Amino acid sequence: QVATSTVRILGMTCQSCVKSIEDRISNLKGIISMKVSLEQGSATVKYVPSVVCLQQVCHQIGDMGFEASIAE
């Protein structure tokens, strides 16, 4: 089973930030795809909930120095 959710990301300033986040999160087990939008300050994450949760994704992004939260 696959889920798609949006994560809000604060602190991104350039495409390099976007690429860094996409590269790191895409390597997590259970992540199918991730598309980060600098303009919208968010990311669309396609993932397998039984393998990885959005809290883990937000935590990983937080470790990179950005502020991440699950969009309502």
Rank of each mutant, 00 (worst) to 15 (best):
Q1K: 12
Q1G: 09
Q1F: 06
Q1Y: 08
V2F: 11
V2T: 15
V2K: 03
V2L: 07
A3V: 13
A3Q: 09
A3S: 13
A3I: 13
T4G: 03
T4N: 05
T4F: 13
T4R: 07
T4W: 13
T4P: 02
T4A: 04
T4Q: 08
S5C: 15
S5F: 07
S5R: 13
S5N: 10
S5Q: 08
S5V: 13
S5L: 07
T6F: 15
V7S: 00
V7R: 00
V7H: 00
V7A: 01
V7P: 00
V7C: 12
V7N: 00
R8H: 09
R8T: 08
R8D: 07
R8I: 10
R8M: 10
R8V: 09
I9K: 00
I9F: 04
I9R: 01
I9T: 00
I9C: 06
I9W: 04
I9G: 00
I9V: 06
I9E: 00
L10G: 09
L10R: 14
L10T: 11
G11D: 02
G11Q: 03
G11E: 01
M12R: 01
M12K: 02
M12D: 00
M12L: 06
M12N: 00
T13D: 05
T13Y: 15
T13N: 05
T13W: 15
T13M: 11
T13I: 10
C14E: 02
C14I: 05
C14W: 04
C14K: 01
C14Y: 03
Q15F: 13
Q15G: 11
Q15E: 10
Q15L: 13
Q15A: 11
Q15D: 10
S16E: 12
S16V: 12
S16H: 12
S16N: 11
S16Q: 12
S16R: 14
S16F: 08
C17D: 15
C17V: 05
C17R: 03
C17Q: 15
C17Y: 05
V18K: 08
V18T: 06
V18G: 06
V18C: 04
V18M: 05
K19A: 08
K19C: 05
K19M: 09
K19T: 11
S20H: 08
S20P: 03
S20Q: 14
S20G: 05
S20I: 10
S20C: 06
S20N: 12
I21T: 01
I21R: 03
I21C: 04
I21W: 04
I21K: 01
E22G: 03
E22P: 02
E22V: 09
E22K: 05
E22W: 07
E22N: 04
E22L: 07
E22S: 05
E22A: 06
D23K: 11
D23Q: 13
D23S: 12
R24C: 06
R24W: 06
R24A: 10
R24M: 08
R24I: 07
R24L: 06
I25D: 00
I25M: 07
I25P: 00
I25N: 01
I25K: 01
I25F: 10
I25S: 01
S26M: 13
S26E: 06
S26R: 11
S26C: 08
S26W: 06
S26L: 10
S26P: 01
S26Q: 09
N27Y: 07
N27M: 15
N27S: 13
N27H: 12
N27C: 06
N27I: 12
L28H: 02
L28V: 08
L28C: 04
L28Q: 05
L28F: 06
K29T: 10
K29A: 11
K29Q: 10
G30A: 04
G30L: 07
G30R: 05
G30T: 05
G30D: 01
G30H: 03
I31N: 00
I31W: 04
I32W: 05
I32N: 00
I32R: 04
I32P: 00
I32V: 10
S33L: 08
S33D: 08
S33H: 09
S33I: 05
S33C: 08
M34W: 05
M34R: 00
M34H: 00
M34G: 00
K35G: 03
K35C: 07
K35Q: 09
K35A: 08
V36Y: 02
V36Q: 00
V36A: 04
S37G: 03
S37K: 05
S37C: 09
S37N: 12
S37M: 07
S37E: 06
L38I: 06
L38D: 00
L38Q: 03
L38N: 00
L38S: 01
E39F: 12
E39S: 10
E39Q: 11
E39P: 08
E39N: 08
E39K: 08
Q40M: 12
Q40N: 13
G41Y: 07
G41M: 11
S42D: 08
S42Y: 11
S42L: 14
S42H: 08
S42I: 13
A43H: 02
A43Y: 04
A43W: 05
A43M: 08
A43R: 03
A43E: 03
T44L: 13
T44V: 13
T44R: 13
T44Q: 12
T44S: 09
V45S: 01
V45E: 02
V45F: 06
V45A: 02
V45L: 13
K46Q: 15
Y47M: 02
Y47K: 00
Y47H: 02
Y47C: 04
Y47N: 01
Y47Q: 01
V48G: 02
V48H: 15
V48A: 08
V48P: 00
P49F: 09
P49I: 07
P49H: 07
P49E: 07
P49A: 08
P49S: 07
P49W: 08
V51T: 05
V51H: 04
V51W: 06
V51R: 05
V51N: 02
V52S: 01
V52A: 04
V52G: 02
V52P: 00
V52Y: 03
V52Q: 03
V52W: 04
C53R: 12
C53D: 11
C53H: 11
C53W: 08
C53V: 08
L54V: 06
L54Q: 00
Q55A: 11
Q55C: 14
Q55H: 13
Q55Y: 14
Q55T: 09
Q55V: 11
Q55R: 12
Q56M: 14
Q56V: 10
Q56I: 10
Q56E: 14
Q56S: 09
V57W: 04
V57R: 04
V57D: 00
C58E: 09
C58F: 12
C58G: 08
C58R: 10
H59F: 14
H59Y: 15
H59D: 15
H59K: 15
H59P: 02
H59V: 14
H59E: 14
H59M: 14
Q60K: 11
Q60W: 13
Q60P: 02
Q60C: 05
Q60L: 15
Q60D: 10
Q60S: 11
I61C: 04
I61D: 02
I61K: 05
I61A: 02
G62T: 14
G62H: 13
D63A: 14
M64H: 01
M64E: 01
G65Q: 03
G65A: 03
G65M: 04
F66V: 02
F66A: 02
F66R: 03
F66I: 02
E67G: 07
E67Y: 14
E67H: 12
A68N: 03
A68M: 06
A68P: 05
A68Q: 03
A68T: 09
A68Y: 05
A68V: 12
S69C: 09
S69E: 09
S69N: 07
S69M: 12
I70G: 04
I70F: 09
I70W: 08
I70R: 04
I70P: 09
I70T: 07
A71K: 08
A71P: 13
E72K: 08
E72D: 12
E72G: 11
E72N: 10
